[in-house]
Deep mutational scan, measured.
Amino acid sequence: SEFQINEQVLASWSDSRFYPAKVTAVNKDGTYTVKFYDGVVQTVKHIHVKA
């Protein structure tokens, strides 16, 4: 599913667990740039983002 900029989502971290994050960019290659609550910004594949 498509997510929008500033949408609150759950994004997987390197430990494969999902954490609350905010979408900061929707990228043309189908990835999302997300910002976790601790301030870390990461680009993740769409399969690693869920509502």
Rank of each mutant, 00 (worst) to 15 (best):
S1W: 07
E2T: 13
E2S: 13
E2R: 14
E2M: 15
Q4C: 11
N6W: 09
E7T: 09
E7M: 10
E7A: 09
E7V: 08
Q8P: 09
Q8L: 15
V9G: 01
V9Y: 01
V9T: 02
L10I: 07
L10K: 00
L10M: 11
L10S: 06
L10W: 14
L10T: 04
A11M: 04
S12N: 04
S12D: 04
S12W: 12
S12Y: 14
W13Q: 09
W13N: 10
S14D: 13
S14K: 13
S14C: 14
R17P: 13
R17A: 11
F18T: 00
F18Q: 02
F18R: 01
Y19A: 07
Y19K: 08
Y19T: 05
Y19L: 12
P20F: 06
P20K: 04
A21R: 00
A21S: 01
K22P: 01
K22S: 11
V23N: 01
V23F: 01
V23C: 01
T24P: 00
T24V: 15
A25N: 09
A25I: 07
V26Y: 06
V26N: 07
N27E: 05
N27I: 02
K28G: 13
D29K: 03
G30N: 06
T31C: 04
T31D: 02
T31S: 12
Y32H: 01
T33N: 08
V34A: 00
V34N: 00
K35A: 12
Y37P: 07
G39Y: 02
G39K: 04
G39N: 07
V40F: 12
V40M: 13
V40I: 12
V41I: 13
Q42R: 15
Q42P: 03
Q42N: 06
V44Y: 03
K45N: 11
K45M: 14
H46Y: 10
H46G: 14
H46D: 12
I47D: 15
H48M: 11
H48L: 07
V49L: 12
V49H: 06
V49R: 11
V49N: 05
K50A: 09
K50Y: 11
A51H: 14
A51G: 10
